[in-house]
Amino acid sequence: MQDLLGLDGLARPPLAATPLVRRGVVMTSLMVGFTLAVPVAEAQVIHTDGAGLNAGEVRIPATGGSLPGYAAAPAAPGRYPVVLVIEEIFGVHEHIKDLCRRLAKAGYLAVAPELYARLGDLSTMTDVPTIIRDVISKAPDAQLLADLDSAAAWATGTGLSGSLGDPARLAVTGFCRGGRNTWLYAAHNPALKVAVAWYGPVGGTPSPIQPRTAADAAAELKAPLLGLYGAADTGIPVPEVEAAVARARAAGKTVELRVYPDTPHGFNADYRPSYRKAAAEDAWARMLAWFRGHGAG
């Protein structure tokens, strides 16, 4: 299933070009359970428990108020490497929360801010076209990048009950739309150590508030980036991704691409029929190794 139809490849403007959204936050808390917009494959859903963790919903100070988010970290007090987890278009629902807990079990402070909280209540939306029209297409990339910066500041300055993030070990990962936004954040934040983009579109049609594609930003990456893609993803042509990788490498950037044969879009989404266990497990191990190998472990 494709998360963004024709809009998934839109990219961010320069920060000075688009004013940040000043209106109030619509979603004041996270949804419970899974998104209503896609069928859930109950038999394969992974549940990671919270044993040995600090984990739960948090409030992240940001422009115009505070955003709801989910965070998880080892319970023992200390400074941990930080992973910013960027959602799909469906919001920070149970799958994204579980990914945060998995990362915490691996020794990270993981935080997933609800990046679309100002634009609509994703917990009530039941179809993809509505989400795209009413939320995703109206989200300025400048705001998104600023909110990710706010989440990083929260993780390293407030954290969870003694579990604090180490600002010198900052990573980002994201899924589908979040994978696209991972490319953009890796071109935005010079303090970032490492990035991993899961099946993030690199092309698309620009708009005034999202004027650059991820491919446009590829030559500006400020951190090593690992791309995890499926060869059977009908919405993200592999040659398009390879061209973005080549552009980054030509600019002297460190980029690695792993393409899984006969694998569709959303192969890590264990709550959806697109899930592919072998590819997802291999990609997760590669992500953790990429983090450790580039200063965020």
Rank of each mutant, 00 (worst) to 15 (best):
R276F: 05
A269K: 04
V32E: 11
H294C: 05
E94N: 14
A168T: 15
M31I: 02
G200E: 07
A62P: 01
M287Y: 12
P237E: 04
A217G: 02
A278Y: 04
A186T: 03
I86C: 10
D134Q: 14
I132W: 03
A296H: 12
I209Q: 11
A73F: 02
A269F: 10
L164E: 03
F34Q: 09
T63R: 09
Y80N: 12
L192F: 08
V25E: 06
C100S: 13
A152K: 07
A250D: 15
D98C: 06
Y271W: 15
R276C: 06
A142S: 15
L115D: 10
N268V: 14
P261F: 06
L115E: 11
N189K: 13
A75E: 13
P13M: 04
P237Y: 01
I46G: 01
P14S: 03
P113T: 06
E242T: 00
V128L: 02
A296W: 10
L84Q: 14
Y70E: 11
G56V: 04
T18D: 11
A106R: 14
L225E: 04
S123N: 01
R59C: 12
K222M: 09
T124Y: 03
T18E: 12
P19T: 01
E114G: 13
A168W: 10
P190C: 09
P19Q: 01
Q44D: 13
L226E: 14
E42L: 14
Q210I: 01
F267A: 02
Y108D: 03
D262C: 05
G52W: 12
A243R: 03
S123E: 02
A71I: 10
T35P: 02
P201E: 02
R286N: 05
M1Q: 11
L99V: 15
R79M: 09
G65P: 07
M125T: 05
A278I: 06
L148N: 13
A51K: 07
P19N: 01
P190V: 08
A16I: 01
T130I: 03
L36W: 00
R180F: 01
L148S: 09
T173M: 13
R12Y: 15
T263A: 08
A186D: 03
L7H: 13
L145I: 12
K222V: 03
G24A: 15
E87Y: 09
N54Q: 09
D3Q: 12
G50V: 07
T156C: 09
V82C: 09
Y260I: 04
R169C: 02
E242M: 00
V92H: 02
N189I: 06
P190W: 07
T213V: 01
S274G: 13
D134R: 12
I60M: 05
T18I: 10
L10M: 14
R177K: 13
P14E: 10
A289V: 07
L144C: 07
V241W: 00
I131F: 00
G33P: 05
L122F: 07
Y260K: 11
A117Q: 10
W198N: 10
T28W: 01
T234A: 11
V111C: 08
P224V: 00
L7V: 14
V25M: 09
D98H: 09
W284L: 08
P129I: 02
E240C: 00
A43I: 08
T205A: 15
F34C: 07
A289M: 05
T130Q: 04
A269D: 11
E114H: 14
Y271C: 14
A168P: 08
Y260M: 10
S137C: 07
I46L: 03
V32S: 06
L99C: 14
V202N: 04
D216I: 06
A243V: 02
A278M: 05
E242W: 00
L257E: 00
